[in-house]
């Protein structure tokens, strides 16, 4: 799980262009949206694309993202359970 969390942090930094940020700067338990990384709705769409492209996970309902994107750890747990690649 820790390996997946670190990989996910690197992917998030890459797809969301989080300039100057390193994986260790991201708290895997902190909220991704709001007070955490301060991501916005376009970032949420990018994360949905990341799930599909890198892990073969298609969200049926965009509202599922609210639960899945609570934190990097929650996201990694979801990927672990649902990944198809």
């Amino acid at each position: 799980m820790e390996e997946l969390i670190n990989k996910l942090k690197e992917e998030i930094i890459d797809v969301l262009n989080l300039e100057g940020m390193k994986p260790e700067d991201i708290d895997e338990n902190a909220p991704l949206f709001g007070e955490g990384l301060g991501l916005d709705s376009i970032d949420a769409l990018e994360l949905i694309v990341l799930l599909e492209k890198n892990y073969g996970i298609k969200l049926k309902n965009a509202n599922e993202g609210k639960e899945i994107f609570k934190s990097v750890r929650v996201m990694a747990e979801y990927i672990n359970e649902h990944r198809t690649k």
């Binding site: 969301l16 376009i42 769409l45 990018e46 694309v49 492209k53």
Partner: peptide, 9 residues
């Protein structure tokens, strides 16, 4: 391809 919302916007 996977269209990027962040580019499209």
């Amino acid at each position: 391809y996977y269209p990027s919302p962040a580019v499209f916007v």
